[in-house]
Design a protein around this nucleic acid. Structure first.
Length: 787
DNA sequence: TGACACATTC
């Protein structure tokens, strides 16, 4: 019950001189049907709303003992204009209005509550309100119908939207615009254009106005339809169409130009605008970021700040943070963090997410985690940013934990989440996790998405199921260049060079032009299959026939191809003939081959070059030290390891893992932490006895340290891949393949022993090392001993 | 009474 009515309303005679107007009105109308507020209360309410002081307006409203429809409408309207954050308030007020029952919603109520439903994408509430409006006989009202169309279109319910549109007795430009904008929102180019033409024809005969263009331009931007965009621009000039001060049309135009890659025009429109607001600034800064011109984006951002903080918005900061992430400039990123904190924008979800993503991409994963934990509200983007951060920083298991947490917290993953998560399965070669992710992708209807399929192709290839990869590739509704490249690379790591080549040749049947990456994948596929002649052929064709200038990555692949194939001198010559200075990675490829082919002399020579260049990363230090060890020069090997330590490069310890019934078991060399270690070591010992009988001898040149021969043999025997395989032999039934993943390249002695293991234990053993797959069967390996 | 431009995760 509401508080008692003031005495003046019920008893006019009691206070005749104090509020004559109010008394007159309240006595003139019976309180049950046509009730009115005291005019000053209504006026005060509207003033507070106009000032944007919603909380005081609400307070005042709650004080009103007997609010009428006008008061309800004013507040509902104010809430519905404040976006999703306040839309729920509008719906709650509408519900109160219905409960109250004394002032039923009228034709001024419905458009605003429907707008609130649109903001929340609340289709259920929207349908209910549609029924209420129909009961009140107002569903064909111009404003109500337009709001209904807007709601149904935003929720992608095209049929009901069309039904409402057709049932309208008369339509104005706003109604037509709702249709155009709805189709534009969902990227339905054809439908939007058809609507646009129909509104100008025949009986309707309405000219597009500024709002039509503002709805249409983002669609053209999304389609990169520069030509149509230009003609819209021309039309707006010819028809001198612009909104009040030209901000909306101007902003939409410059955004369209930027997204179509025409920054010059975007800048011209920006310069010519008489009035700019925060959205305008965001659009121009974002435009430079989208076109990859990060430094200029920063300059614009500074220009904006130079005019005060008035234009600063979460959106412009978000774009700038993306620029920081892409330039890997944490210093500026941290400055932006401070700016956000100072200006009170840090609580904004978009800004917070950008900040989180910037830290994650920069590898500052602890900062990202802290920020994530401190965020008051988290959405799908927040979780996805963290998942992707963990995966990019090699913390695949942590990424799965975040994904689990996401599900516990009822946050729905989207395409971006899954595209980040699936590579984590690939990284761990966790087939069960991968299949699970594949399942959830199907359930959520994301399976036809190109980016999802690309991730799945890569995942199945890296988990050893190249046939699954191909199935997904063949079933894709549409493929992009990444799909082709991923599939070719998948064949490559499986040593299926012929299949890779066949797929490459098939590209032109599907009107798909190879790019630089295609050739990297193709040449390295040839390299893994020992197809040296073919690889050389494609390298030459790349420049001659396809006009692609080789990059450093192509030279790396070529050196790898030649050297791995045993043509070490030719590889050396090839490096000498390069038009650019070979970097460490090129020499590293040659060094790795020197080790495989045991060419100590050339190895030493290459090692000197690498030392001069400064061996970046861990790989070359390890190789260098291995070369010296293999030559018996342990002092020098030790020296390299000391330098490596001094420079702060940690050699990641060799680690192998195997997935049994969906759980991962990881081993490092000499590891005894596994609960079944005694059995594992016993099994390894038994295997050693068996294979010694077949003539196996440990190749101790693969041991790094200067140990006694017998010690070396032990060090070799307990390499992580051998432990993982022995565990697999013990736990998996005989019909199952043993699938082991190693973070580094498999060592030569292990390679020999695993061949023997496949023979004496009659098991198919698949090892995925850092470079490729090895399928061991009947004492043979699919890599043909070149890896 | 009504529409409408910018942005974060891949």
């Amino acid at each position: 019950m509401r508080p008692r009515l003031p005495a003046t309303r019920l008893n006019p005679a009691a206070a005749p001189r104090r509020a004559p107007t109010a008394r007159l009105l309240s006595t003139a109308a019976p309180p049950s049907d046509a009730r009115h507020l005291q005019p000053q209360q209504q006026q005060q309410l509207e003033q507070l709303i106009a000032r944007g002081d919603l909380s005081r307006a609400r307070h005042l409203f709650d004080e009103i003992p007997d609010p009428d429809a006008r008061a309800y409408n004013a507040l509902i309207r104010a809430y519905s204009w404040r976006g999703p954050a306040h839309a729920a308030g509008a719906l709650a007020l509408y519900a109160a209005m219905l409960r109250d029952g004394r002032s039923p919603p009228n034709k001024y109520t419905f458009p605003f509550v429907l707008k609130a439903c649109s903001a929340l994408l609340d289709l259920r509430a929207g349908r209910a309100i549609h029924r209420h409006a129909a009961r009140a006989g107002l569903h064909a009202d111009l404003f109500v119908s337009t709001a209904l169309i807007d709601l149904y279109m935003k929720c992608a319910r095209f049929r009901p939207a069309n039904a409402v549109f057709r049932a309208m007795p008369a339509r104005d430009a706003v109604a037509w615009n709702a249709m155009v904008a709805g189709y534009a929102l969902h990227g339905m180019y054809g439908h939007a254009l058809e609507c646009l033409l129909r509104m100008q024809e025949g009986r309707a005969c309405l000219r597009p106005n500024a709002s039509t263009l503002v709805a249409l331009l983002p669609l053209l931007a999304q389609q990169s339809a520069l030509r149509q965009g230009k003609s819209v621009h021309a039309y707006s000039v010819r028809a001198s169409l612009h909104d009040k001060d030209g901000v909306l049309v101007g902003t939409a135009l410059l955004d369209m130009y930027a997204k179509c890659g025409n920054l010059l025009y975007a800048q011209r429109v920006f310069e010519a605008m008489a009035v700019r607001n925060d959205v305008t600034w965001s659009a121009i800064i974002g435009g430079f970021v989208v076109c990859g011109r990060m430094l200029e984006a920063f300059i614009l951002f500074k220009d904006m700040l130079a005019q005060g903080l008035g234009f600063l918005s979460p959106t412009s900061v978000a774009s700038s943070l993306r620029a920081c992430a892409s330039l890997a400039d944490v210093r500026i990123g941290k400055q932006l963090h401070v700016l956000l904190a100072k200006s009170g924008l840090q609580s904004d979800l978009t800004a917070g997410n950008s900040l989180l993503s910037m830290y994650a991409k920069a590898g500052l994963i602890d900062e990202a985690t802290t920020l994530f934990n401190d965020m008051a509200a988290k959405d799908t983007v927040s979780y996805s940013a963290l998942v992707s951060g963990y995966v990019q920083n090699g913390m695949a298991d942590a990424a799965f934990l975040v994904f689990r947490k996401m599900q516990v917290c009822n946050v729905e993953p989207d395409v971006a989440t899954m595209v980040s998560l699936i590579p984590a399965c690939a990284h761990l070669a966790a087939l069960q996790h991968g299949k699970c992710s594949h399942g959830s992708v199907i359930v959520r209807g994301m399976a036809p998405e190109t980016s999802i399929c690309n991730a799945l192709i890569d995942m199945y290839a890296k988990c050893g199921r190249i046939a699954f990869s191909r199935q997904i590739f063949d079933a894709m509704p549409s493929r992009d260049i990444v799909s082709w490249n991923t599939m070719i690379a998948g064949y490559g790591i499986h040593g299926l060079g012929k299949e890779a080549t066949a797929l490459f040749l098939d590209m032109k049947n599907h009107a798909c032009e190879p790019d630089g990456v295609t050739f990297i994948c193709l040449i390295s596929a040839c390299s893994h299959s020992g197809l040296v002649t073919e690889g050389k052929h494609w390298f030459h064709m790349m420049a001659q026939k396809y006009g692609i200038t080789p990059r450093m990555e192509h030279y790396i692949s070529m050196v790898d191809l030649l050297a791995r194939g045993g043509f070490l001198d030719e590889a050396y010559q090839f490096i000498q003939s390069m038009p650019m200075k070979a970097d460490v990675r090129v020499w590293g490829a040659l060094l790795a081959a020197c080790r495989v082919h045991k060419n100590i002399d050339l190895g030493k020579q290459v090692a000197r070059v690498i030392q001069k260049l400064g061996p970046e990363g861990t790989g070359n230090f390890v190789l260098l030290s291995n070369i010296f060890s293999a030559a018996g020069r342990f002092d020098e090997a030790a020296e390299v390891r000391i330098i490596q330590k001094e420079k702060g490069f940690k050699k990641s310890p060799g680690c192998s893992w195997i997935e049994i019934n969906g759980s991962l078991h990881a081993f490092i060399g000499g590891d005894r932490s596994h609960p079944r270690s005694p059995e594992i070591y016993q099994e390894l010992h038994n295997i050693l006895v068996d294979i010694n009988k077949l003539g196996y001898q440990a190749d101790t040149s693969f041991v790094l340290q200067d140990l006694e021969e017998e010690e070396k043999e032990k060090a070799l025997l307990y390499h992580s891949e051998k432990l993982a395989i022995a565990f697999g032999i013990l736990t998996l039934s005989e019909d199952k393949d043993i699938f082991v993943t190693k973070n580094l390249r498999v060592c030569g002695d292990c390679h020999t022993v695993i061949k023997y293991m496949s023979l004496v234990r009659r098991r198919d053993i698949i090892v995925r090392d850092a470079n490729r797959f090895h399928h061991f069967k009947n004492g043979q390996c699919s890599c043909g001993d070149f890896w």
